[in-house]
Every structure is written in C-alpha cells, then in structure tokens.
Design a protein around this nucleic acid. Structure first.
Length: 408
RNA sequence: GGUGGGAUAGCGAAGUGGCCAAACGCAUCAGACUGUAAAUCUGACGACUCACGUCUUCGAAGGUUCGAAUCCUUCUCCCACCA
C-alpha cells in the first residue's frame, strides 16, 4: 500500500492514449494516501456479449495495475441498458436481453474477468440498481445537462450524421447514462478504450455539475483484431477470447500478421517497449525468427489464461499438426452407424464427410475433394465417387483443421 | 404532416423482362509455396446430381407474361430531407 506515488504514476500512465490529467491523478493519489483510503476505479461492461477477449484485456490490465497499487475497481455491469436493447451499431439491432440472460451473462463475465482482476479488490455492481428507480422526470433533468451540439461533437456521431446515417435518440442517452453511473458510484478514475473518450469525459462533466470532484479519465489503445485492421470485437469475429481452449488461443495467435504481434506483446502481455524494440531489431537482423517470436506470443498468451505448461503443450501440438502435418492429440471420434455401409461394407467419402460434420453439404464435400483437401490415412482422395471399407481408428482429414477418427 | 430514397446471397454492393444462382469487393474455405492458421499466388464459394440437368433464392403476399430480382397491386420494415 505504500508504493511511492511517483512509481504508481509511472505504471498507471504507461501505454495510455488520453489522460486527463496526470496532475489531477497525482493529487488524488496523495489525498488518498493521506486519508488512508483507496481510489475507486470505474470500468463499465456491456452484458450482451459475455465473451471477454484480448481487446478487453488491454483495459483490464490497467485496472489490475491500479489494484496492484492498492486501489479498488468498481466493475459495472450494464444490465439496465442491456435489458432495454440498443439500436446503435451500423446494422445489427441488439435484442433486449431477459433478466435471466443478463444474470447468466454477468456470472460468465465475472468468471472470466477474475482471470485478470483481483477479486478482493473488485466491487461488482449492476447499473439497474440505480437506473431502474429513476423516473422520467429524472431522465429529463439529466438530459438537460447536455446539448445536441455537444453530442454531435462525438466523432462517431458527427461522422454518421454527416453521412446521413441514422442515429437513435437512445444512443444520445447512453453516454449520459454512463456518465451518471460515475456520479452514483463516485468514481475517482474511469478507464476505457479511445473510442470511449467522449463518454468518459461526459462523466467528468456531470460529476462537476453535480458537485463532485471530477473523475480522472484515461484511455487505452484499441487492440486490432486478427485481421489486423479492425478493432478486436465480438461482432466482427476477429477476436481471441480469454476463455477459449488453449489450442484455439495459440492457433489464433499464430494467425496474426508478423507486424501485429508486437502490439499484442505490448498491450496484452505488458512487455516493455524496450524489450519489444530489441526483439524487433533482432528479427530485422535475421537473428531471431519471426515464427519463433510468434510462437512465444502464443505460449505466453495461453500461459496468461491457463499456465505455462498448457502453453507449452499448445505450442507443441501446433507444431505437430501444422508444421509436421501430423494428427492432433484430441481428435474427434466418429462412430460409423451400422446402416451407413452398403452391402459390401463400404462407405462413400462424400457421405462420410457430411455425416461426420467435416463438411456442411455434399457440394462442399465434393469441392473439398476436388481441391485436394481430403486425406484418408494420409492418402489423398480426390474422387467423389470413392468408396472404401472403413477400419477402426482410420483418420480422415479435411483441410488443415478438420480431423476425425473413425470408429466401428 | 409532406417529399424523396431504400430492402439482393455471411457483410458491402452491382443488376431494372430472357445471356441471372445473380458482376465486383471483403470475409470464408482449399491448393501451391513457406516460417505459420503470416505474406504471396491459384482456385472454389445456394442445394441436389455432378455430365447434362433439376430445384429453392433477390423484404412478404398476390398478379401480368411463354418467361420476373427486374413490370403492376397490396402489405411489412428501414432511412434521409422539409415542416
């Protein structure tokens, strides 16, 4: 608890994009230390997508840093907003969630979040607690604090407005609700991605208007997803979830581009800039193989959410399957139904591929065959008419990632 | 309240009577290559049969026509602008 303030500041400031403001934070830290209390760090989560991914980890890492300095994280689950639904987002209208769904999601959320956060220094709150009792009058009073011009100042809104794209009134209300959360929980600090800057600042404003000391706002970079272009998000499907199986985490890590891996080292694994810079130079000089660096990334990511041994195993498994072209360890078993064989006891490849789930349709199975993606016991099969007598334990391989072991 | 625009395959977006299972881009998948589920190149990408062909798709339901994603009617939903 007695970490020097300067040291705390350095850790807390690392990798931030916006920071309002370091001086204020310093004052707050000093005051807290004097009064022997911890700061309240706010973090809001949307309950509609209970998959925590590496994009979230960037923020969670920062929260953890605050906790390690002795502060308290107030983790707000936006169940209220989740139950109302949200017309935002370009296309997909979010469906309102039922109370049960929200509860289930919240549990799953916590289970994942505490892989990073310190449970003892975290206060989990649901914003329906204070938002549900609000009356329409309260809402209007709240809205009176903000003008449309202020709202339109938000990058996302101004762009859409200019492009004649719809903006729902509810979307205007959301930042306000989020700001109000800050007031209710008396946040000292709020953190979020750079896309949250506006909302975070609004919290500051509202706190001031309501006679509170304004929260410190700091934003963190948005982590690019697997495609290397868009930010990591569930809806784009370009994410690595912290609760995914180890080999998925590893495999996905290996699929990112060489350039991108440095970002992951920095933002997810908290590697120092200096260290990363050294590696980069070694790779550029040819002293270090990028594949090995990425392998390390994969191992460390798995180790982060499981343990070092699991990371090592995932790495070896990956080598075996993709580098050496061998069979994975935990291969799925497909028991061949009795009536599947013809009079001579043979089965057709196409039917087998579909029945075992390796292909979604006969057409897809044929295509895969014609493209040379199917192997039975290491023999390439390209003829869709091919029939064979199955043997117990035969391995059928479809593409790079599809494996099935036959059982009679 | 008024005016205009729109709804096409996972997404974006062409197509305005037959040559449309529907261009193109992205995503996805496969192959080659490799350092890997990177990059690059090539190919595939509704279903059934795969050889021809058949069937179901272009917001929904009807209709016109030998023939409709394309024309008409009604309906549903969405958007912008002006009030």
């Amino acid at each position: 608890m007695s970490i020097p303030i300067e040291e705390q500041l350095a850790v807390l400031q690392a990798r931030t994009v916006d920071f309002f403001s370091p001086e204020e934070l310093k004052r707050k830290l000093e005051a807290a230390q004097r009064e022997g209390r911890s700061l309240r760090i706010k973090y809001g989560a949307d309950p509609s997508a209970p998959d925590i991914h590496l994009g979230h980890v960037v923020g969670l890492n920062k929260l953890r840093a605050f906790q390690d300095c002795g502060h308290t994280v107030v983790f707000i689950i936006g169940d209220f907003t989740g139950m109302i639904g949200d017309p935002s987002g370009r296309s997909n209208t979010r469906k309102p969630l039922s109370r049960e769904q929200v509860q289930a999601n919240a549990l799953s959320y916590q289970e994942q979040v505490f892989r990073i956060l310190d449970r003892d220094k975290t206060e989990v709150r649901f914003n329906s607690e204070w938002l549900s009792p609000l009356g329409f009058e309260d809402v209007i009073r709240l809205s009176a604090h903000v003008t449309v011009a202020q709202m339109l100042a938000r990058d996302d809104f101004s762009k859409r407005y200019a492009a004649n794209q719809p903006i729902s009134l509810v979307e205007f209300l959301y930042p306000l609700v989020q700001a109000y959360d800050s007031v209710v929980i008396r946040a000292d600090v709020e953190i979020g991605g750079t896309d949250q800057l506006f909302n975070l600042l609004l919290g500051r404003e509202l706190q001031k208007l309501m006679g509170q000391e304004p929260q410190i706002v700091l934003t963190l970079p948005l982590l690019e997803g697997l495609d290397g272009v868009n930010k990591m998000s569930k809806s784009l499907g370009n994410y690595i979830g912290v609760a995914e199986p180890a080999k998925e985490i590893f495999g996905k890590a290996m699929s990112i581009s060489d350039d991108l891996m440095w970002r992951y080292f920095s933002l997810v694994l908290n590697r120092s800039d200096k260290e990363i810079q050294e590696w980069r130079e070694q790779v550029a000089d040819g002293k270090l193989h990028p594949r090995d660096v990425k392998d390390r990334l994969g191992r460390e990511l798995v180790a982060r959410f499981f343990d070092a041994e699991t990371g090592e195993a995932a790495s070896q498994e990956f080598r075996r399957v993709f580098s050496a072209g061998q069979i994975p360890e935990d291969i799925a078993i497909f028991p061949i139904p009795g009536d599947f064989k013809d009079e001579e006891g043979r089965v057709g490849v196409v039917a087998l591929l579909v029945a075992s789930g390796l292909c979604a349709s006969n057409g897809e199975a044929r295509r895969l065959l014609q493209q040379g993606g199917v192997r039975i016991q290491d023999n390439k099969v390209t003829d869709p008419q091919y029939r064979f007598i199955p043997d117990d334990g035969m391995i059928v391989r479809a593409g790079k990632r599809g494996f099935v072991k036959l059982a009679l």
